[in-house]
Design a protein around this nucleic acid. Structure first.
Lengths: 165, 165
DNA sequence: TGAATATCTATGCATCTGCATGGAGTTCTT
DNA sequence: AAGAACTCCATGCAGATGCATAGATATTCA
C-alpha cells in the first residue's frame, strides 16, 4: 500500500523517499537509454559496423585539431574507464582506425590520432547512426518537445555530484 | 572488419540528418543515464551491495503475487538478455536471494521465488537507492520539471508500462 | 636534490557478457 | 499420433569488462 508522492519538504529526514515523478523519471531515463541505444547498436552491428563506443572515439578525435587527442581526454569526453579505453584503443589501432604517437613533452602520455580509414568509418557509420537517432527520437517528438527534453536532460548532466554537505 | 556493401560514400543519399535538438537529446540521454546509473552503482557497491540488476530482479519479484515470476517475465520487465538472466539467477540463488521452483503445467519453464533474505536485501538496498535517486534527480529538478521530464521520456520508451525498477 | 607522491597508461586475472547451440518440453500440422 | 516447428532455459567458448596493480614518467616538497 501506500505510495509516497507527497511533496519534498526539505527537512532533514532520515530517509528521503523519491517522489513518483522522480522515480518515473529515473526508470524511464534508464529504460529509454537502454532501449534506444540497444536498438541502434543492433542496427549498426547488423550493418557490419563496430559498437557505438568506437564511434564515440572516432567522432571525438575527428573534432579535435589535427584529429588528435589523448586517452585521458577521450575518457573524460566519452565516459570511458581508463583500462577499458586502453584496450579499446588497442583494438582500434589493430584495425588501422587510430594511431598512437608520442606526446610531446610528457613521455607518460600519448596522442591518439585518427587515420584516414578512421575518418572514413566515422562517416559511413554516421550514415546509419544519424537516421537511426532520427527514428528513435526525432520521429517520436516534435521539434519543440525535443528542445524541451534536451534542456531538461541538461540539468541532470554535467555538474559533478559532490555532496560535501 | 567486414563492411556491408552499399556504402553511402560520396554520393548524395536520402539522408535524414537529425536536428540539433534531437542530437542533443540523444547525447544527453545517454550521458545522463550513464552518469547517474554509474554513480548510483558505485555508491551501492561501496556500501557493500550487489549491482542494480540484482535490485531490479528483487523488486520485480517482490511486486508479483507471492513473490513469484518466471525468467521470461523478468527478462521482459527488466530488459535482460535471456542467457544473462539465467546466470544472474544462478548467482542470486547461490546467495539465497531467490529460489527456483517448478512451473505448474509447463516443465520447460520455472518459477523464480524471492526468499525472505531477498526481500530483506531489497529493502536495505532501497535505503540507499532511494536517496541516491533523489540526489541525482530530485535535487536537480523541481517537482514540475520532473513531471514534465517523465512525460517526455515516456514518449521515447516502448508503450508498455514497466513494472520494474 | 632526493624521496615521496601524483599522473598516465598498460596488463594479469577473475568475472561477466554475447553468441551460438543444445536439450527438454510444448504446440502445430497433417 | 508422428514429426516438424517452436518455446524456454542452460551452457561452452570467446571476447569484453572490472579491479587491482605495475611501470614509467612528472611533480612536489622537505
Amino acid at each position: 500500500m501506500a505510495q509516497k508522492g507527497q511533496g519534498s519538504q526539505g527537512r532533514d529526514a532520515p530517509f528521503q523517499e523519491p517522489s513518483d515523478a522522480v522515480t518515473d523519471t529515473w526508470v524511464r531515463l534508464i529504460r529509454a537509454g537502454r532501449e534506444i541505444a540497444g536498438g541502434i547498436e543492433a542496427e549498426l552491428k547488423e550493418a557490419g559496423f563496430p559498437p557505438l563506443a568506437w564511434y564515440d572515439v572516432l567522432l571525438h578525435l575527428k573534432k579535435q585539431d589535427e584529429g588528435r587527442s589523448s586517452p585521458k581526454a577521450i575518457e573524460e569526453a566519452a565516459l570511458f574507464e581508463q583500462y577499458n579505453l586502453s584496450r579499446l584503443l588497442d583494438r582500434m589501432e589493430a584495425e588501422g582506425l587510430v594511431r598512437r604517437i608520442p606526446y610531446p613533452g610528457d613521455k607518460r602520455r600519448q596522442l591518439i590520432e585518427i587515420t584516414g580509414e578512421g575518418r572514413a568509418l566515422q562517416k559511413r557509420m554516421w550514415g546509419f547512426y544519424g537516421p537511426a537517432i532520427n527514428r528513435s527520437i526525432g520521429d517520436r517528438l516534435s521539434e519543440k518537445e525535443a528542445v524541451q527534453l534536451a534542456a531538461l536532460l541538461l540539468k541532470l548532466v554535467g555538474q559533478k555530484n559532490d555532496p560535501c554537505s
